[in-house]
């Protein structure tokens, strides 16, 4: 009975052996009472751990852990930096917002928060423009795609969001001091009610950024996302749920190879 290792005995204790394996181990234990005592001890350990903690899984669930409540309540994020960013956009004026925030904060905000602030600033400025909302119109999609791809030094497709009820208006190039290359692309879409949604896309920042952030800023919701190629912040006066539904369409088109199963 030389095939029985420590791992086999653990698998026996944890109930992960098939019937054949179990029979083998049982025969081995019958012939080796000292090992059998050891195995019995591990089984008692397992039982004791379950006795200690299994009851916690049978307790009534407190309201704050109600999935329904979390899914339908307002967004959890109440980021101090982003709240200030929103206030700055409204009160100080967009052009000053970035600098004011960086001066006003003792702890330097993370790259994601800075990019979200930049994206929301740009969103606030350009969605109000009726005639000059974009630099290059959506009818010149191919030109726009190659122009912005060149400037950002990455391959940038213009996501088609007609399935989400959004018409592509076009895009523009913007400064982005926080990322290498210093440039961002803003793409703008409009829904049937005239509400506008923007994508603010930059190359990868080169330092660690969170995969996603979600923020509510006044009437607008911003959703930030980064992968190993680029970052994208989606801003629109939509609910977080609606924005996330659109986001999955955007991300599938920006990075068709991404599987998205990261946290």
């Amino acid at each position: 009975m030389s095939g029985i290792t420590r791992d086999t005995l653990m698998a026996f204790v944890d109930g992960h052996l098939d019937p054949t394996g179990r029979t083998e181990v049982e025969a081995f234990l019958a012939a080796n009472p000292e090992v059998a005592a050891e195995v019995a001890l591990l089984q008692r350990q397992n039982d004791a751990i379950r006795t200690l903690y299994a009851p916690a899984g049978a307790e009534p669930i407190p309201v704050r852990l109600s999935v329904d409540r979390i899914a339908h309540s307002g967004r959890r994020r109440n980021n101090r930096f982003l709240t200030q960013a929103a206030a700055a956009v409204v009160l100080v004026g967009v052009g000053l917002a970035g600098g004011w925030l960086l001066r006003g904060n003792a702890d330097t905000p993370g790259i994601a928060d800075r990019l979200i602030a930049d994206a929301v600033s740009a969103h606030t400025v350009y969605v109000l423009e009726k005639r000059h909302a974009v630099e290059v119109g959506g009818d010149e999609e191919e030109h726009l795609s190659s122009w912005l791809s060149n400037r950002l030094q990455t391959n940038l497709a213009m996501p088609d969001l007609t399935a989400s009820g959004l018409t592509f208006l076009g895009g523009r190039l913007l400064p982005a001091p926080d990322v290498p290359g210093g440039k961002a692309a803003q793409l703008m879409y409009e829904d049937a009610n005239g509400e506008r949604l923007t994508l603010y896309i930059t190359p990868r920042p080169g330092i660690d950024a969170p995969r996603t952030e979600l923020a509510s800023l006044g009437a607008d919701t911003a959703l930030f996302w980064s992968d190993d190629m680029l970052t994208c912040t989606i801003t629109a006066p939509y609910s977080a749920d609606k924005l996330e539904a659109i986001a999955s369409a955007v991300f599938a088109q920006l990075n068709p190879s991404g599987d998205g199963y990261e946290i």
Binding site: A56, P62, R64, L65, V67, I70, A71, R75, R76, T212, L214, L223, W225, A240, D241, E244, A245, A247, S248, F251, D259, G260, Y261, E262, I263
Partner: peptide, 24 residues
């Protein structure tokens, strides 16, 4: 502390549920 962790976990999962359709 345990329920704080679970609450954070649920909020994260719920807010990302559309974005990251878990394949598994």
């Amino acid at each position: 502390r345990a329920d704080d962790l679970v609450q954070d976990c649920l909020e994260r999962a719920i807010s990302r549920r559309r974005l990251f359709r878990p394949t598994g």
